[in-house]
């Protein structure tokens, strides 16, 4: 049985204390502090990372539950010298202010665009069976798991829309 997690493409050992959340594993063991701790209880979304292609709250899962899994954090999406298109769009449209919720927003949005492409429905979808669109209302609902206390939501939606339309 493997006891490692693949983090941004690199296999890393799981810590011995099973209490360590995936979030604390990333921040403390791996030094990947781009993933933020805002509430530690799944109530803010700042800790959102992508595990095996799905976005999750890394605070509400244990590192020990993820052996063999593949985790992508904000650091795995882009760097200051090579940012992802969404990262660039967030800067261009000022989709943040203090920046603390931002990595979670971007991880969340990255996975969300894949979910729309895969036809996942949301509470805002009028037709559960139709093709899913990255409409403003869909984006707002699908991004509602990421709180932004600075109130950058309008700009976040604009930034995501730009990338969604570019993909189309």
């Amino acid at each position: 049985m493997s006891k490692t997690i693949t983090v941004n493409g690199t296999e890393r050992p799981i810590p011995s204390d099973p209490r360590v959340s995936l979030l604390d594993f990333l921040r403390e063991n791996e030094g990947l502090t781009g993933t933020k701790k805002g509430c530690d209880h799944g109530q803010c979304g700042a800790c959102t990372v992508i595990v095996n292609g799905m976005r999750i709250n890394s605070c509400l899962t244990l590192a020990a539950m993820h052996d063999g899994d593949s985790v992508t954090t904000i650091e795995g999406l882009g760097t200051p010298t090579s940012p992802s298109p969404l990262q660039v769009a967030f800067v261009e449209h000022d989709g943040f202010q203090c920046g603390y919720c931002t990595p979670g927003q971007i991880c969340s949005a990255t996975a969300m665009l894949d979910e729309i492409a895969a036809g996942f429905a949301s509470d805002a979808s009028e037709d559960l069976l139709g093709e899913m669109q990255a409409s403003p209302e869909e984006i707002r609902e699908r991004m509602s798991g990421n709180l932004c206390r600075c109130g950058a939501y309008a700009n976040i939606v604009t930034a995501i829309r730009e990338i969604a339309q570019g993909d189309a």
């Binding site: 990947l32 502090t33 781009g34 993933t35 933020k36 954090t73 904000i74 650091e75 999406l77 882009g78 760097t79 200051p80 940012p83 990262q87 660039v88 967030f90 800067v91 261009e92 000022d94 943040f96 920046g99 931002t102 990595p103 971007i106």
Partner: peptide, 12 residues
Amino acid sequence: SRVDGLAKVTGT
């Protein structure tokens, strides 16, 4: 755009 923007969006 913010001069600290790239640092914030990349988690650095």
